[in-house]
């Protein structure tokens, strides 16, 4: 999936933020290093960003900035600042998981951060009508990926579906795939559900920040 890019100067013009703010937010880790894409243009080197992500992030920083310090924001938004070691007993209290996630729980509390993200991926799928057995595939794929959650930019979890015709018997197989964009499936398969891991990680972090 090709993301639409936006030049740095256009970000500044569109949002009205200053160079000072942009560089400060970068230093604090509020804007991930991976979003800074350097390209050669006719005028020389220029930096581009994934448009949708950077605009959403700037809006987010601005709305949260009122009540929290930049350092607190960094804790929430910086990808490498995934809360390690902490455990949560009631995942359904977190908005991204919610009641929909109830059917996905597999133990009595003590969920780690990667497990919460996994549950959120599953719950999100359930909400758009994915069957519970398939949502569980997503959960299983993500729950052990602690390392990956530190740099989730461009990582997707996908449910792919393949239709197979065997002597008049038609089967539909679903498989879960964890990978980085661009993800390519064969022509007989289609993407049934796609999760942008970076977004889910962020949602879970924000929700945790609100609970605490």
């Amino acid at each position: 999936m090709d993301e639409e890019l936006i030049a740095k100067k256009d970000v500044l013009e569109l949002t009205g933020i200053s160079y000072g703010q942009l560089y400060r937010w970068k230093r604090k880790g509020l804007i991930p290093e991976a979003w800074f894409i350097r390209r050669s243009t006719v005028t020389g080197q220029e930096t581009f960003f994934p448009k949708e992500k950077i605009l959403a992030r700037i809006a987010q920083i601005r709305s949260l900035k009122e009540e929290r310090s930049l350092d607190e924001l960094a804790q929430i938004l910086a990808p490498e600042a995934a809360p390690v070691g902490a455990r949560w007993d009631d995942p359904t209290a977190l908005a991204p998981i919610g009641k929909a996630g109830k059917s996905l729980l597999w133990k009595e509390g003590g969920y780690t951060f990667p497990e919460l993200v996994a549950l959120a991926c599953g719950a999100q799928a359930l909400r758009v009508g994915v069957r519970p057995a398939e949502a569980k595939l997503l959960v299983d794929l993500v729950r052990e990926e602690e390392e990956l959650l530190r740099s989730p930019t461009g990582v997707v979890v996908v449910l792919g579906e393949k239709a197979v015709n065997l002597e008049g018997l038609s089967l539909r197989l679903t498989l879960g795939v964890l990978g980085r964009e661009p993800l390519v499936l064969d022509r007989e398969s289609r993407v049934k559900h796609r999760v942008d891991l970076e977004k889910v990680v962020e949602q879970v972090k924000l929700a945790l920040g609100e609970v605490r």
Binding site: S18, Y19, G20, Y23, T43, G44, Q45, E46
Partner: peptide, 22 residues
């Protein structure tokens, strides 16, 4: 430098491909 970007930029004796600022 290749690029220099800032809100207030005040330069002397500098060679750069691009300078951007307010």
């Amino acid at each position: 430098a290749e690029t220099i970007e800032g809100d207030e930029v005040d330069l002397e004796a500098t060679a750069a491909q691009i300078v951007r600022g307010k």
